[in-house]
């Protein structure tokens, strides 16, 4: 007899179907009879869907114990193994009961009598809870302190701006110088610099002029003064 190639929920499901299809009494004899078919199914499973193979093998082992016992009644396999195998009938019955309840739940599911919860989440609402220690005086003091701190933050860039020498100013200054003198040096350019920032800006201005090929730089050796020349017009 061929087993239909439908999917079973597991080895117990398969065994149950085999027995019920043949209208066999669940006796050790009946279980022994379906062993061959069960093993055939496992052979197919090995290729198609090996995921639950181990579970099928557990039941197959029990079936083989039962079959061995029915063929060789004198065979002694040890009480533990035998008991485990002969428990199969009870296991099948329990499984069948839950399978039936599963079908009952499936009917409930099909009725689609869904009910819904109230999903407003009040915990997300923002609430202002002032500290009980807050007084008008402490609030005023905090505000004054905040104002002072803000004043410092606002003043800071003003002081910074005073020191700034812009690169474009420096560029025109160097260009003017170079047209007058043809050649000059970095040391003479930064001789009158009032701050470190001005030296940096001078250097940046030189780099920009080199990049634009307006001037060219020459240095005879390491740490020697850098000579600045106007690039020869092509």
């Amino acid at each position: 007899m061929q087993i239909k190639t439908e999917q079973f929920e597991g080895p117990l499901d398969l065994l149950l179907q085999l027995i019920e299809e043949q209208k066999l009494d669940v006796s050790t004899l009946a279980l022994a009879k379906v062993t061959e078919q069960f093993l055939n199914y496992i052979r197919g499973l090995q290729e198609k869907n090996p995921i639950n193979l181990a579970d099928f093998l557990v039941i197959a082992a029990k079936l083989l114990v039962i079959k061995s016992k029915s063929l060789l009644p004198n065979l002694d396999l040890g009480t533990e193994d035998e008991e485990a195998a002969f428990d199969l009938t009870a296991q099948l019955l329990t499984y069948k009961k839950f399978k039936t309840i599963g079908k009952f739940l499936g009917k409930l599911d099909l009725k689609r009598r869904q009910s819904w919860a109230h999903e407003v989440d009040f915990s997300d609402r923002v609430t202002f809870l002032p500290d009980p220690d807050i007084t008008i005086i402490s609030l005023a003091a905090s505000l004054r302190q905040l104002a002072t701190e803000l004043k410092n933050i606002i003043r800071l860039p003003q002081e910074f701006l005073k020191e700034v020498v812009s690169i474009s100013d420096k560029i025109s200054q160097i260009q003017k110088l170079i047209t007058e003198k043809i050649e000059t040096s970095l040391s003479s350019l930064i001789k009158d610099a009032k701050s470190k920032t001005e030296i940096i800006v001078t250097f940046l201005a030189l780099l920009e002029l080199v990049k634009q090929r307006i001037i060219s730089l020459e240095q005879s050796e390491h740490f020697a003064d850098i000579m600045i020349k106007k690039t020869n017009a092509i």
Binding site: V26, S27, D87, T89, K96, F104
Partner: peptide, 17 residues
């Protein structure tokens, strides 16, 4: 829900376990 459920012809058999 499950009182009428039994294995084919094995009523006494299963209960005996």
């Amino acid at each position: 829900l499950t009182k009428s459920i039994e294995l084919p012809g094995a009523a006494q058999n299963a209960n005996g376990q």
